[in-house]
């Protein structure tokens, strides 16, 4: 028992889950009413789009890049979905596929010209936002019925966002962590030379990872408009920061292909819940962003303390 508790590696891996558990307990103590299906569904509803955006970011971080454009990309996809999916579903779907193709191209460009991803994605964030503003200068559009229905699905007994999060996390976990091509994909971040020597194309793996990031960005946008039922170019601006923070909270690291899909989803849920918790604490809205920064710093400090202990 003590040996288990002292196992720092295990502790490090369990940290995202522990953080979430501590936060949940704190919320329930502060606001017992939240401990109901309705309360949890309400608090967690935005966890789904944030989790999907966080996974998108995770794919990019896994190959040692960083995506500073995911927030405005998600905003753009809500605009496309809100404008075209209800009336011209085929055109809408085509445009969304084009968005994913643009992400693949972005990955290829970064790899071929050996460009810093921060700058390329920062530039692209302007492009996404610009297109979104051109398409939809003022908030508007409408979620297609099926999407609205799906996101507001009621399952007896369990809040829908929890089911959605488990399914999403399981799919990505199996695909990326337990498949043979998943190992190659992560290897692109861990040891690119080894992957290249083994005969795999680094260009292809980067394109696949950016394609996955684009796909999850689209899914995030779709789930978001399913919840809000109106689109806006700026609707997801915060998601860039949320997604990076979520990946890191979930135990991911910037370099070396060390990421964890389950952790990323847990990290995203933690961030979504943190907002509710701060409201329950009656922290002045002025300090809410700051409190999120503080939570991030505390968790990272804990992780640093644990890792330092294991290195000794």
């Amino acid at each position: 028992m003590t040996a288990l508790l002292l196992n720092r590696d295990l502790l490090r891996r369990a940290l995202p889950a522990i953080t979430l558990a501590v936060l949940l307990v704190a919320i329930f103590i502060k606001q017992p009413l939240a401990m109901s299906q309705f309360g949890l569904t309400l608090m967690l509803q935005y966890a789904v789009p944030i989790a999907l955006a966080t996974l998108a970011q995770m794919f990019v971080i896994a190959v040692n890049d960083l995506d500073l454009s995911i927030g405005s990309f998600v905003g753009l996809t809500t605009c496309i979905a809100g404008l075209y999916l209800p009336t011209e579903p085929l055109l809408g779907a085509l445009l969304l596929l084009l968005c994913i193709a643009a992400y693949v191209a972005m990955g290829a460009l970064i790899h071929l010209r050996n460009l810093p991803s921060i700058v390329v994605t920062l530039g692209m964030s302007f492009v996404w936002l610009g297109i979104a503003v051109l398409l939809l200068p003022t908030p508007g559009g409408k979620a297609p019925e099926w999407l609205h229905g799906l996101m507001n699905l009621k399952v007896p007994g369990v809040p829908f966002p929890i089911i959605a999060a488990i399914v999403i996390a399981a799919v990505v976990q199996i695909g990326l962590m337990h498949s043979s091509y998943g190992v190659v994909l992560r290897g692109t971040g861990g040891n690119p030379k080894a992957v290249a020597r083994a005969g795999w194309s680094l260009l292809k793996t980067k394109m696949v990872m950016f394609g996955l990031a684009g796909s999850f960005g689209v899914l995030s946008g779709l789930s978001l408009i399913g919840l809000t039922s109106a689109a806006d170019a700026h609707i997801a601006d915060r998601y860039t920061l949320y997604s990076i923070a979520g990946v890191i909270l979930g135990g991911g690291e910037f370099i070396g292909g060390r990421v964890s899909p389950v952790g990323a989803v847990l990290g995203a849920i933690t961030l979504a819940l943190a907002a509710s918790f701060l409201i329950f604490l009656r922290i002045s809205p002025d300090w809410q962003i700051g409190a999120q920064g503080a939570i991030l710093i505390i968790v990272l400090a804990l992780r640093a303390a644990i890792t330092r202990g294991s290195a000794r």
Binding site: V120, G123, G130, I131, V133
Partner: peptide, 25 residues
Amino acid sequence: SAGIRLVATGLIIIAVIAIAGGERE
């Protein structure tokens, strides 16, 4: 319009660094 301005700014930044080229890290 504001949209065009954003798109152009973004594309030009990317174009400049793509042409200047990456270097071996």
